[in-house]
């Protein structure tokens, strides 16, 4: 952002002629449509999502039952809410560790010079990223069903005798969510890593080679340290994405068995729109409060990582200054 601001600052410095005045007016006209859409369809919903959280409200009747922080108090005392918080953390940690780690290995291989078929592999491993998550959930639900492809295959090679209840056991279902979530997002992380790797000047590698450093030494002493700033960005993106896991969870496990894979986003959805699920009518106010908590959790984590990346960059700068 700073870059853009700086790059374009030089185009200014005109005197206030009628021409610049008219240009400025046109600039505001150009900004207007986006501004209207943003104010009406983004900012207003953000503000209202906070407002609703202070009401007891079913979504249909007038919004007049102000309850203060009662929704939040109830939320803090509900085990199912904290359970869904825990499942979200499992999901975030699992997909981040697997997804970010494995994608780095893949990116390092694909960044090697004179490695044939780079584009081919990149397409293959990136493919799951672009496919519709809600459809993937349905397909995987079938593949990992009791009589699904995986059990069939494992039984036909006599690896197992009885079908494994992948989606019937809390632990297995959670593991499955994490693995499929990581599979889905790995290609994205791979591209992030590749763009980081490509920003390392090739002279660095050449001089390392002249010094007689082998593959592993170059990796540990040159590549990995230089990737640190981008690691912070990738971790942050992966975590924020994981915090909002909804499509896959809803379509693959729907929180089952017994809410043991329910994530925060699904918890909110179930209270807001799953009328009858939590017993009776929608509880939009309560769901809004849970949504606000999810937003705050995400902000806190982002702030921690933002700080982390800020400090690593600052350290790098002071090092260069010496």
């Amino acid at each position: 952002m700073e870059k853009i601001a700086k790059k374009t600052r030089t185009i200014g410095k005109q005197k206030t002629t009628p021409l610049t005045k008219s240009r400025n007016r046109w600039a505001y006209v150009f900004l207007l449509p986006q501004a209207i859409v943003f104010l009406g369809l983004s900012l207003y919903p953000i503000i209202m999502s906070y407002v609703y959280s202070f009401f007891a409200w079913d979504g249909a009747s007038p919004l007049n039952d102000f309850v203060g922080f009662a929704n939040y108090v109830e939320l803090f005392q509900t085990t199912r809410f904290w359970g869904s918080f825990l499942h979200t953390i499992y999901y975030v940690l699992g997909t981040t560790v697997i997804g970010v780690g494995a994608s780095l290995i893949l990116a390092i291989i694909l960044n090697t010079q004179q490695f044939t078929g780079k584009a081919f592999y990149r397409t293959i491993y990136f493919l799951p990223v672009v496919t519709t998550t809600a459809i993937i959930g349905v397909i995987m639900n079938n593949i990992f069903g009791v009589n699904g492809l995986v059990n069939q295959t494992l039984q036909s090679i006599n690896f197992i005798q009885q079908p494994i209840p992948w989606l019937g056991s809390s632990t297995l279902a959670m593991i499955l969510l994490v693995v499929i979530g990581a599979w889905k997002s790995l290609g994205m992380n791979m591209i992030y890593w590749l763009s980081g790797l490509q920003s390392i000047p090739s002279e660095m590698y050449e001089s390392a080679q002249l010094d007689g450093a082998g593959f592993w030494r170059t990796l540990v002493h040159i590549t990995l340290p230089l990737l640190k700033p981008i690691l912070a960005v990738i971790l942050l993106l992966s975590i924020v994405n994981g915090m909002h896991a909804f499509d896959l969870v809803k379509t693959l496990t729907n929180g089952d068995p017994y809410n043991s894979t329910e994530t925060l986003d699904l918890y909110v959805f179930n209270y807001a729109f799953g009328g009858g699920m939590g017993g009776g009518t929608s509880r939009m106010g309560y769901a809004s409060a849970a949504g606000v908590m999810l937003g705050l959790f995400t902000l806190i984590i982002s702030a921690i990582f933002g700080g982390f990346s800020f400090f690593t960059q600052k350290k790098n700068k002071t090092k260069k200054g010496e």
């Binding site: 919903p45 209202m48 999502s49 849970a290 606000v292 705050l296 982002s302």
Partner: peptide, 19 residues
């Protein structure tokens, strides 16, 4: 434009639905 990415959002689909 950049800062807006960092605003913590509540469950905006509810107000969007109402709107």
């Amino acid at each position: 434009v950049v800062g807006v990415m960092f605003i913590p959002k509540g469950y905006t689909i509810i107000p969007l639905y109402q709107l």
